[in-house]
Design a binder for these strands. Structure first.
Ligand SMILES: NC(=O)c1ccc[n+]([C@@H]2O[C@H](COP(=O)([O-])OP(=O)(O)OC[C@H]3O[C@@H](n4cnc5c(N)ncnc54)[C@H](O)[C@@H]3O)[C@@H](O)[C@H]2O)c1
Ligand SMILES: NC(=O)c1ccc[n+]([C@@H]2O[C@H](COP(=O)([O-])OP(=O)(O)OC[C@H]3O[C@@H](n4cnc5c(N)ncnc54)[C@H](O)[C@@H]3O)[C@@H](O)[C@H]2O)c1
Lengths: 221, 221
DNA sequence: TGAGTGCTGTGATTAAATTCACTGTGTAAG
DNA sequence: CTTACACAGTGAATTTAATCACAGCACTCA
C-alpha cells in the first residue's frame, strides 16, 4: 500500500514559500466568506501568474472544481497539512531581550499554528519572571524543557556569544529546525535546518533596488 | 561610448542577497586582520560553492589577485558601493509598538549603514515621547519629516488597518522602498519595492522541512 | 440538446540560475 | 631560468524554475 499520498510529493522550497502566502490570503478570503476562487483571481491577489499558482497546487494532488475554482477552506486545510501546521506545534525561544519580548507578545504566531511554549535566558534577572504569560527558564533547563514540551523548533534571539553551543545542545536534544535572528553563521549537522532572518540584509536589498532604479533613470535621461 | 561602468552591471537579486552575506563575513574577517582571502575559503565560510562566489564577484568587475586572492577590505568596500551603503542612509519607522521599539533599540542597523532617523505612531500616548534616543512623531508629520530627513526607506511595523494609506502617502512623498513586517499585502506603483518579512512563513518553511525529513525517514525505514 | 465559454491540469518551451571545466597567469621553489 | 602549481575569470553545459499553450471537461443558455 502507498506510504505517501496520491501524488508523488516533490514540492520545491520555492513552492512551499508561496504556499504560505497563498494560505494567508485564503484565510482572509475565508473570513470574508468566499467559498471558491479561481486561479487567476487568487494569483492576482498574491502577485503571481495563474500558471504558477496552478503548477504549485498541482505539485501535490490538488483538485479544483473546473467551474467554481478551488475550495477556499479545503485548499487552506490541505496547505496546512503539507506544511505541517494542521495541528498546533510548540516552539522555544532563546533570548528574552527586546526582540524576544516582542516575539513573545505577538499573537500572530498562534493564528498560524505556532505556540511559543518556553523562553530561555542567561540573565538571572529574567529567569523565573513571566513574559506575556510564559515563564522564562534558565538555560540549564533547556534540554528537559525541550523534551517535556515536545518542542520541534527553536527561535534564536540571544547574543551571538555562545550561540553555537546552544544550537549544539538543541541538536543533541532532538531539535532539527532553528529560526535565527542573530547575525552570525551557525553550523548544524546534515538533516538540520537553520533559517536566517537578516533584517539588515533586507534593507540592503531595498537600498540596492532603489539605487539601481536611480542609475537607470540617470542613464535614460 | 560607455554610459555605465567598466563592466555591464547585470547584477541579479540572488547575487545581491548573497553579497550581503559575503560582506558580513568580510567585516568579521577584517576585524580578525585577515587581508586577503581565496574564493574557496570565503565560499566555505558562507556556505556557497567557490564557482558561485567567483561568478557573483565577476558580475561587477571584481579584480582578485590570483596569488593572494581577494582583498578583504577592498571587496567589502566595493560591495557597499554596489548596495549603496557606502554612506549612512536614513530610514523611517511607522509603528512604535513592541516590534518597533525592538527595532529602534537595535544597534546592528547603524553598523550596516542604516540610521532610523524618525519614528511615527498614531497613539497619542506615544507621540512626543522619546524611544532609544529618537522622538516619536505624529503621523501628521510624515511627509515633512520624510523630506526633511531625506528618508529613502520606510519600515512598516504598525497595525494592518490603514497601512495602505500610509504607504500611498509615503510613495507620494518620494519613498520607493518599504520594509514590511505586517502580514498584509500592499500595492505600490511600478518602480517602488516592498520587501516583506514574514516570520510565520519562515516558521512554516521550517515546519515543512522537518516534516519532509520525517516522511523520508519513515519511508526509508 | 448541443454549441459556446472559460476553467483546470499538464506537456512543451523558454528563461534563469548554478555548476562544470578549462585557459591564462602570477608565484614560488629548484 | 624553468618547471610546477594553484587560483581567478569565464564560456559551455547542466540543472532548476517559470511560462506558454492547449486538450479536455463542466457548466450555461439558447
Ligand atoms: N532588536 C532587533 O530589532 C534585532 C534585529 C535584528 C537582529 N537582532 C538580533 O537579535 C538578538 C537579540 O536582540 P535584542 O535586541 O533582543 O538584544 P538584547 O540585548 O535586548 O537581548 C538579548 C537577550 O539575550 C540574552 N542572552 C544573551 N546571551 C544569551 C545566551 N547565550 N543564551 C540565552 N540568552 C542569552 C540576554 O540576557 C538578553 O536578555 C541579537 O543577537 C541581535 O543581533 C535584533
Ligand atoms: N511583535 C512581533 O513579534 C511581530 C512579528 C511579526 C509581525 N508583526 C507585525 O508587526 C506589527 C506591529 O507589531 P507589534 O507587536 O509591535 O504590535 P503593537 O500592537 O505592539 O504595536 C503596534 C503599534 O502601531 C501603532 N499603530 C497602529 N496603527 C497605526 C497606524 N495606522 N500608523 C502608525 N502607527 C500605528 C500602534 O499605536 C502601536 O504603537 C503588527 O502588524 C504585527 O502583525 C509583529
Amino acid at each position: 500500500m502507498a506510504p505517501t499520498d496520491k501524488k508523488d510529493q516533490k514540492v520545491s522550497l520555492h513552492t512551499v514559500e508561496r504556499l504560505s502566502v497563498y494560505r494567508r490570503k485564503l484565510e482572509e478570503l475565508s473570513a470574508d466568506e468566499v467559498e471558491y476562487i479561481h486561479s487567476h483571481q487568487l494569483a492576482a491577489l498574491v502577485g503571481v501568474t495563474p500558471a504558477q499558482l496552478r503548477r504549485d497546487l498541482a505539485s501535490f494532488g490538488s483538485y479544483g472544481n473546473i467551474a467554481r475554482g478551488y475550495g477556499v477552506k479545503q485548499m487552506s486545510r490541505t496547505i496546512s497539512q503539507i506544511i505541517g501546521t494542521d495541528s498546533m506545534q510548540n516552539v522555544g525561544l532563546v533570548g528574552v531581550g527586546d526582540l524576544g519580548r516582542a516575539l513573545l507578545s505577538y499573537r500572530g504566531f498562534e493564528e498560524r499554528g505556532f505556540h511559543i511554549a518556553a523562553a530561555f535566558d542567561v540573565d538571572p534577572d529574567k529567569v523565573g519572571r513571566v513574559f506575556a504569560g510564559r515563564r522564562c527558564y534558565s538555560l540549564d533547563k533547556l534540554e528537559t524543557a525541550l523534551v517535556d514540551l515536545q518542542i520541534r523548533i527553536l527561535v534564536l534571539a540571544a547574543r551571538p556569544e555562545g550561540l553555537q553551543e546552544i544550537v549544539d545542545r538543541g541538536v543533541a536534544a532532538g531539535i532539527r529546525s532553528f529560526l535565527n535572528f542573530v547575525p552570525k553563521t551557525l553550523t548544524v549537522p546534515e538533516g538540520c535546518f537553520v533559517e536566517h532572518i537578516d533584517i539588515s540584509a533586507k534593507l540592503e536589498k531595498l537600498s540596492f533596488l532603489s539605487r539601481q532604479q536611480n542609475d537607470r533613470t540617470e542613464v535614460a535621461e
